[in-house]
Simulated scan of single mutants.
Amino acid sequence: MDTPDTAAPASTPAHRSRAGGLLLLALLLVAATAAGLLGWQQWRALQAQAQARDQQQRDALEARIDALRQGQRGQAQRLQQAEATNRVLRDELLGLGQRAAAIEDSVSKLADPDRHGAQALRLDQVELLLAIGQQRLQLDGDLDGARRALALAAPLLAAVDDPAWLNLKQTLAQERAALEALGSDPRTVADGLLDQLVAAIPLAPPASSAAAAAKAAPWYARVLDRIVHVQPTAGAGLRHSADRQAALAALQLEATLARAAIARRDAAGLQQAVVRIDGWLRRLLAGSPQLAQRQRLSAQLRAVALDPAMPLSGSTLAQLRAQRDG
């Protein structure tokens, strides 16, 4: 009966030691798990930092590559500009070489004793001036410019003492005399007549001689004049200021068309414009003593020859070229 009582206390410490071992093992497992989680988190943080550093390095490398590409493009553009500059300089050098060759050729021709140097130079200048005068006549009908060109050519031709050019001197004198005989430029004359024709048109209707006589008429005549108005038929419809302003505007428009015809030496266009101007003047100046004066100016303007005949124009230049070629 005593043996079971002594064995029971011995089994209790053994059971407790096994429970403590299991608890210690569980604690060790928990500690190992916590240490593993902490280590894994630190490893992830290190990996993230390493990736961030790698990304920064890649960004820096890409930025450097972009900078190198931009520098390469800039170098290529500068090389292209340098090539273009070299081409321009090459062309300029070629042009300078050609001009130098032309100058050398001209000097050699002037030094040729067969050309008589100074005389040939004077004849070249005379030909240039005659050509300028002829072109001004043909292109613009500039009589004054042609006269100045011939006046500059005359002393140069007079300085040529070779008797072979005596006929040319006489031809030049005849051509100058023919140009001087033409007088002023027809366009200048026509512009002056046109300005006088359309100048100072009054805005108010002119007082007629009938109205002036009515003031001196007896009282019964003045009473009847208030009932019956007598006015020129041509001025009908232009008694109000607005109507006269419109007519004056139309007159200025026709004057502008006439000036354009004068500038391009269009005789037909000038005639048509003057006819229309004369019609407006008859309406605006009906009953005025100025109408007769304006009609005389209109007749003078229609009689102006915008393109006068010049039979001797260019004769000196043609003779000079023919003689030099011969």
Rank of each mutant, 00 (worst) to 15 (best):
R264L: 10
L317V: 09
T316N: 12
D5N: 06
T6Y: 07
A118H: 11
A101T: 14
I277F: 07
R226G: 15
L24A: 15
P206F: 00
G237S: 02
L156P: 01
L257I: 09
I65N: 10
L301P: 01
S208T: 15
E92P: 02
A154I: 00
A7T: 09
G279V: 06
A199K: 12
L257G: 11
D142I: 02
D5T: 06
D195W: 02
P289T: 08
P311Q: 03
G74T: 13
Q196V: 06
Q51A: 14
V275C: 02
S241L: 05
L23C: 07
L179T: 06
A260T: 11
A217C: 02
A82K: 04
R136C: 01
D243T: 04
L23G: 10
R90V: 08
Q138M: 12
S208H: 12
L23I: 06
D59P: 00
L172R: 10
Q196M: 10
A52H: 12
V160L: 04
D2Y: 00
Q49L: 13
D266F: 09
T12P: 01
R276F: 01
R64S: 04
D195C: 00
L94N: 13
Q55I: 10
Q174F: 04
V160K: 05
L27P: 00
A267V: 00
L284E: 05
G269T: 01
V228R: 14
A10Q: 12
A268V: 14
Q98K: 06
A45W: 09
Q196I: 01
L156S: 10
A322Q: 15
T256P: 03
G269A: 03
Q77I: 12
L224G: 13
S209P: 11
W219E: 15
L123W: 00
R324V: 12
D105G: 07
W165E: 02
R276H: 01
L137I: 05
L257Y: 08
A309D: 09
L156Q: 11
T171Y: 02
Q272R: 15
Q49R: 14
E180I: 11
D124A: 13
L182N: 06
Q271W: 06
Q134S: 13
A286S: 08
G97V: 13
L121T: 12
R187T: 02
A305Q: 15
T3E: 11
A131I: 05
P205D: 01
R115L: 12
A14S: 03
T85R: 15
Q252A: 15
A236W: 09
A207V: 15
R58E: 14
L28A: 15
R73L: 13
A48R: 10
E175F: 06
L297D: 07
A8N: 03
A177F: 05
Q125R: 13
Q55H: 10
I201H: 07
D195H: 09
V228Y: 14
G97C: 06
Q196W: 03
V275A: 08
V304S: 09
L284A: 02
L320T: 03
Y220D: 09
D59N: 11
A67I: 05
L143M: 02
D225F: 05
L306G: 01
D2C: 01
G39K: 09
E92N: 08
P206N: 02
I262Y: 05
Q293Y: 04
D243V: 04
R324W: 08
D266A: 11
L194M: 10
P232W: 10
A178Y: 08
S288F: 05
H116E: 14
Q80H: 07
